[in-house]
């Protein structure tokens, strides 16, 4: 709080420096937040497209596997699924968007040819192949969606953090620093006024003392002159009394 700071010129200078730094930081963070939001908008558009494709691919894959189940039976489909030998793998590389590290997912062995799948061609039908192919396409879409959604989640976290920092600077730190600055400035002005008033009082007191001294001296002087005059008056009647008898 503003009341906790000592009202000194040194503190005032320190607070002014902090205000300058905070305002600079606030501006930079605001720019970062706006930049992140713009980048996020681009990713969001992409995510909507990817989501649409994903939903379509899932519907398609569902249809195909339901057809395979209906034609071949659930046991045959499960049997084929259990026989798969090639497994899809993903590797993740990273890309930097305004300081946010987002993944770029590379996939391998997702789409496979018929002979790579591992289940026997003779024991299964084309329905199962079609279902497998549809699910491979669905996996490709899922990998793309995962990449985009991870990027979105990471960017959202960063946007939230940056927004919180901007708000903390704007609504907490800067107002407090400005309060402190105002408090110290008022206190220093008050001290200055008190000092001027005190000097004025001292000067008045000194002048009054000097005037009193001068008056006292003048009074003493006047008193001394009066005494001399009285002495003279006392001497003069004697001489006057003596002079007629002497004549």
């Amino acid at each position: 709080m503003a009341k906790d700071v000592k009202p000194t010129r040194k503190n005032l200078m320190e607070i002014e420096d902090r205000i300058e730094l905070s305002e600079r930081g606030h501006g930079t963070l605001e720019k970062k937040r706006d930049g992140l939001i713009m980048e996020f908008m681009d990713i969001l558009d992409k995510a909507q497209d990817v989501r649409g494709d994903l939903a379509d691919d899932y519907d398609e894959a569902q249809k195909k596997i339901n057809m395979a189940r209906a034609m071949e039976g659930d046991v045959a489909v499960r049997g084929a699924a259990a026989a798969l030998q090639e497994h899809p793998e993903i590797t993740t590389e990273s890309k930097n968007i305004m300081g946010v590290v987002v993944p770029q997912i590379e996939s391998s062995r997702v789409s496979k040819s018929l002979d790579e799948r591992g289940y026997g061609i003779m024991g299964t039908s084309a329905r199962i192949d079609e279902a497998a192919e549809a699910y491979e396409d669905l996996l490709e879409s899922i990998i793309l969606a995962a990449e985009v959604e991870t990027a979105m989640k990471k960017m959202l976290r960063e946007i939230e953090t940056t927004k919180r920092r901007v708000n903390a600077l704007e609504f907490k730190l800067l107002p407090e620093l400005k309060d402190s600055q105002e408090y110290i400035e008022q206190k220093l002005e008050e001290q200055e006024r008190e000092e001027t008033f005190r000097l004025k009082k001292i000067k008045e007191k000194k002048e009054a003392e000097e005037a009193e001294e001068a008056a006292r001296e003048a009074a003493e002087e006047a008193e001394a002159t009066d005494e001399e005059d009285e002495d003279l008056d006392e001497v003069q009647p004697d001489t006057a009394a003596q002079s007629p008898t002497g004549n």
């Binding site: 569902q62 259990a82 497994h87 899809p88 793998e89 491979e136």
Partner: peptide
Amino acid sequence: MSQEIAVVGSPEFTTGFRLAGVRR
């Protein structure tokens, strides 16, 4: 490091993905 894709859900849901080679 290479990683895998995993599927969680009912057996009807996971079977299709297993057809595409998902083993986790």
